[in-house]
Simulated scan of single mutants.
Amino acid sequence: MRKIVFTFLLALIVGGVLFPASVFARRVAVFGSLLIERCTNDACTTTEGLTTQFNGVTFLANPGLEKTIASQIPPFWFPVFVNTDTDGPGGGDLDTTMVLVNVSGSSQKIKLTLRDSDGNTVALTTDVFTVDINHTLSLSISNLLP
């Protein structure tokens, strides 16, 4: 029994040395654009462009927010840059964060469409959001990527 326990513990130690946590890290990268549209039905199968329903800002930053590039919303189509390790972001990583405030006077259901630099749609884990009156929606784009 001692041999089995000793062998198991030795295997764990050797495995930890040979395969550090960084080996299992997941890096996501996207360079493209994000479109925000308003859903015109409950299932959000049809959408229309936004006009004055939201105000907000997007910003591209590294995890420490030491270098930041910001742009105002509207317009509701803006560039997106993501190159980050989702398990342990570091100083060289980049992520785009979007902050929207519903100023329309009614609850709004919106759909996000992410496209890469070639115009191809990039799948998101969640692409439809409901934002109540005067509420703020804050999203990190890297968290929406599968």
Rank of each mutant, 00 (worst) to 15 (best):
I36R: 04
I36D: 04
E37W: 02
R38C: 08
R38H: 07
C39V: 04
C39G: 10
T40I: 15
T40N: 13
T40L: 11
T40K: 14
D42A: 15
D42I: 15
D42M: 09
A43K: 13
C44I: 00
T46H: 11
T47M: 05
T47Y: 02
T47C: 05
E48S: 15
L50Q: 03
L50K: 02
L50N: 04
T51G: 04
T52N: 10
T52C: 01
Q53H: 12
V57T: 12
V57P: 01
V57S: 06
V57W: 07
T58Y: 04
F59I: 08
F59Q: 06
L60Q: 11
L60G: 03
L60F: 05
A61L: 08
A61W: 03
N62G: 14
N62P: 08
P63G: 01
G64M: 14
L65S: 06
E66K: 14
K67A: 12
T68A: 10
I69M: 13
I69V: 15
I69Y: 11
A70Y: 12
S71Q: 04
S71L: 10
P74T: 01
P74L: 05
W77F: 13
W77T: 14
W77S: 13
F78I: 09
F78D: 07
V80T: 08
V80F: 07
V82I: 14
N83D: 11
N83G: 02
N83Y: 05
N83L: 03
T84S: 13
T84H: 02
T86M: 14
T86I: 15
D87F: 12
D87W: 07
G88A: 13
P89R: 00
P89F: 00
P89M: 00
G90V: 13
G91L: 07
G91R: 09
D93M: 07
L94Y: 06
D95T: 13
T96L: 10
T96C: 07
T96F: 04
T96S: 08
M98N: 04
M98F: 03
V99Q: 10
V99L: 12
V99T: 11
V101N: 10
V101D: 03
N102L: 01
N102S: 03
V103M: 13
V103Q: 12
S104M: 00
S104L: 01
G105A: 06
S106D: 10
S106F: 09
S107D: 09
S107E: 14
Q108Y: 00
I110V: 14
I110N: 03
K111C: 04
L112G: 03
L112F: 12
T113S: 05
T113M: 01
L114Q: 12
R115Y: 05
D116V: 06
D118W: 00
D118Q: 11
G119L: 08
G119F: 06
N120D: 07
